[in-house]
Amino acid sequence: MPFLSQPLTLGAFFPALPLDSLLSTQGIMVLLLAAYAGAMWMFLTSAPKVHTIMVSDLESGRQFYEGVLGLAAAEVPLHYYYNYEQSLGATSVDPLYMSPGLGGPATATRNFNGTDGLWYQLKKNTQVHVISGASLGQKDRQRHVCFDRDCLEQVLMRVQTRGIKHKIRREKPLNFLVKDWEGRVIELAEVSN
């Protein structure tokens, strides 16, 4: 085993590349870009999945998600500080689901900051972002609107496991009613794009 007694050089790991080309300005830039790409990949794959739910009243939403469902408050994910969702165009909302006082989606987009609202931990790497903006439902019910079926299925499962009184009105799109501890009826509705 004579190779174990020999000291390893950088050229041993990159035999096809001469050492001077690896340590050139261009070689260092390529290595830095590869390191940056690896860091971004790790950052984005470790970021939690975030579901957004619009509610007609933020305070009753807080009472529902914290009190009734018992969800723990969560930290705002780092990628929301850099307006990640706004860069994807996720802030455009159909005016049908906006309350009249907000003045339509243009106002909501202009005034909405990605870190506003309430943040809850739904599962290990899944969070719920609760924001205001939904209109009241029939009979002035509190209304919670979500564009993601998976999110509402997880909320429904949480309602069922906690033994909370509920009624499924429709499977597709998912729509169900929940009665909170104060007797208020809350409508949770999936909105398909």
Rank of each mutant, 00 (worst) to 15 (best):
A34D: 03
V128C: 05
G117R: 01
K179P: 00
R110V: 08
Q63P: 01
Y80R: 15
A90P: 08
A12K: 06
D116P: 07
R62Q: 04
G70H: 03
F14V: 14
L33E: 09
A16N: 09
T161F: 12
Q86K: 13
N175I: 05
F147G: 10
E171C: 06
V159M: 12
G103L: 11
L152H: 02
R162T: 12
M98A: 10
K124E: 11
G61M: 04
P7S: 08
S92D: 13
Y97N: 11
L23W: 05
N111S: 08
L69G: 02
Y82M: 15
E182F: 03
L23C: 09
C146G: 12
L78C: 07
N83H: 10
V50C: 11
R162Q: 15
R149K: 14
L10Q: 10
L69T: 07
G70M: 04
H166K: 15
E182Y: 05
G38D: 07
F147V: 09
L4C: 08
L71Y: 07
I168K: 13
K179H: 02
G101I: 04
V130S: 03
A37E: 03
A16E: 14
D94I: 12
V130Q: 01
L33F: 12
A34F: 09
K123S: 13
V155T: 11
A72D: 06
G163I: 11
Q86Y: 02
K172H: 13
D140T: 03
G133W: 00
R141L: 11
A90N: 15
M42C: 06
R162I: 13
G114L: 02
H166C: 12
Q142G: 03
P15A: 12
F14P: 06
E182S: 15
F3V: 10
Q160R: 14
L122T: 01
V128I: 15
M54E: 03
F3N: 05
A47Y: 01
A37I: 13
